[in-house]
């Protein structure tokens, strides 16, 4: 599905997202209850660099400054952070973290945030956008991954065949949507055959104040230890 199809399905009442040469998604949509949703994101697998972060973060800050409680939809198809010396020289880590911080503050100030991954999503760009929301869903066919298998083979110095074989046994490192659901990163995938607007509303209604991704990963069996260990450390700290 293209971003246009997805937005049409999400907002039958209309939206004003237009294609941009920088592949950023910026706009708003109309909910069936008459309310507004602010929409930000990145399209076409475009890498996210400093020039992309600033308009997105600015929009989030504007939503917070305006008050109220309109939700923010973060919709992403990005191959990852932009790999460029200029971006690194200027401190890309600060820019990406800034966007994540703006999204978290929005949640805290009463603007629920929903992530939707419909293409690629990787590495630092994933952390700054979709993984910084209150809840993250995906369209079937989305390809969230930290790194693809060939690159992983290069870095780990393991044969790709071996990695492929191992990826069948553990969601902890295997790229792809199924793994990301099992470890608790992605809450679930939406069914394109059913109205997306209703699935979006259901996602909004189910948002919790707490980060439950470690518990979800444990329940789904894809990340068996994290929740328990985080809990043990906290218990030891409290004494």
């Amino acid at each position: 599905m293209t971003v246009a199809d997805i937005l049409a399905g999400l907002f039958p009442g209309g939206h004003d997202v237009a294609e941009r040469p920088d592949h950023l998604i910026l706009g708003s949509g109309r909910r069936e209850n008459g309310g507004t949703v602010s929409i930000i994101g990145i399209d076409d697998g475009e890498p996210l660099g400093i020039s992309g972060v600033l308009p997105l973060a600015e929009r989030v800050l504007d939503v917070i400054a305006a008050g109220g409680n309109i939700p923010i939809l973060v919709i992403v198809d990005t191959q990852g952070q932009r790999m460029a010396r200029h971006d690194e020289m200027l401190g890309l880590n600060e820019y990406l973290a800034h966007l994540a911080k703006c999204l978290r503050l929005a949640s805290h100030e009463g603007h629920p945030t929903v992530g939707l991954n419909y293409g690629k999503a990787a590495a630092g760009a994933f952390l700054a956008t979709a993984l910084a929301t209150d809840v993250l869903f995906a369209m079937p066919g989305a390809e969230p991954a930290v790194m693809d298998l060939p690159s992983m083979a290069r870095v780990t110095k393991l044969p790709e065949e071996k990695l492929k074989e191992l990826s069948q046994t553990t969601p902890v490192f295997a790229p792809g949507l199924r793994s990301m659901i099992e470890v608790g990163a992605v809450a679930g995938s939406w069914d394109p055959a059913k109205p997306l607007s209703q699935q979006f509303e259901a996602a909004l209604a189910a948002i919790t104040k707490q980060d439950l991704r470690d518990m979800t990963g444990a329940r789904r069996g894809g990340r068996k230890l994290a929740a328990t260990i985080a809990g043990r450390v906290a218990a030891a700290a409290i004494g």
């Binding site: 910084a132 992983m152 490192f173 990301m180 470890v183 990163a185 994290a226």
Partner: peptide, 15 residues
């Protein structure tokens, strides 16, 4: 990378 998904998500949770 050997625990890429768990690690990436851990970063998101820590942030």
């Amino acid at each position: 990378l050997q625990e890429a998904n768990a690690g990436e998500l851990a970063v998101a949770e820590v942030m």
